[in-house]
């Protein structure tokens, strides 16, 4: 569904993304992992057209997505830090989003209900706590039943109950027509909701595998341990070659 070819993005002297090659197919739920500053958010922003790649191609169902805006109608995005216009109320925000897309029918309001956001429609966005903002972002991401879900640190800042609600929702929405891309530092969360792992380091793609293969290869039963195992091996190899 999404193919990334030789994607490169430079911020000044820093190479945020360096020749990324990947192919995401429908049905995959991809965990995007890597240390801070490894280029995870930049990769997501390139997919959304928010950051413009310096080199390489990004395709969505065969069409170059840097030349189009329409494809974003099929992407649901939950940013790491949801920033919304101060003067708007929650209800107005949701109304505007629907207005922009011409009030499509059959929207997914499950999260709006489960997070109890409808009762807060009159609250101005500037008065929201970090966690409530996250809930708003999550509800918006799922609202239009997108073919691609991009969730940047979805559970960060959510209380345990809300985090469980969101994880359950992600699991329910995992299906064969959809790609879900999630970044997180909480590997146990990713273990539950993902089928594949894409590991980034210093803007380079280290590997892109399905979780079962990774676990068998490393002989570990948990994603966290498997990743630690791989990182250790990488470090050793680097030392050996140095």
């Amino acid at each position: 569904m999404i193919s990334i070819h030789n994607l490169t993005k430079q911020f000044g002297r820093l190479r945020a993304l360096d020749g990324i090659e990947a192919e995401f197919s429908a049905g995959q739920s991809i965990a995007l992992i890597g240390p801070n500053g490894s280029g995870k958010t930049t990769l997501l922003k390139c997919l959304l057209g928010m950051a413009r790649p310096d080199n390489g191609t990004l395709q969505f169902e065969g069409s170059d997505l840097t030349r189009s805006d329409t494809y974003r109608a099929r992407i649901g995005y939950m940013p790491q830090i949801g920033r919304y216009p101060d003067n708007m109320r929650i209800g107005q925000l949701f109304d505007m989003m629907r207005d922009l897309r011409g009030y499509p029918e059959n929207v997914d309001e499950e999260l709006l209900d489960e997070f109890g956001l409808k009762a807060m429609f009159d609250k101005p966005l500037r008065a929201l706590s970090g966690g409530t903002r996250q809930k708003v972002s999550a509800a918006l991401a799922f609202l239009f039943r997108p073919a691609v879900l991009i969730l940047d640190e979805p559970t960060a800042g959510l209380d345990p109950l809300a985090a469980e609600v969101l994880k359950a929702k992600i699991l329910r929405e995992r299906n064969t027509d959809r790609v879900i891309i999630v970044t997180s530092h909480i590997l146990s969360d990713l273990d539950e909701i993902s089928t594949h792992v894409l590991y980034l380091m210093d803007g380079k793609l280290q590997f892109f595998k399905d979780i079962e293969t990774l676990k068998t290869e490393t002989g570990e039963s948990r994603l966290g341990l498997a990743i630690a195992n791989v990182m250790r091996r990488h470090a050793n190899e680097n030392q050996a070659s140095a």
Binding site: S63, D69, T70, Y71, R74
Partner: peptide, 19 residues
């Protein structure tokens, strides 16, 4: 032409250009 089709309805399948 792509930039002139910025508000294609959400329900349309993505084809680069709505038919």
């Amino acid at each position: 032409l792509a930039k002139y089709s910025s508000t294609a309805a959400a329900t349309l399948p993505f084809t680069g250009e709505p038919d």
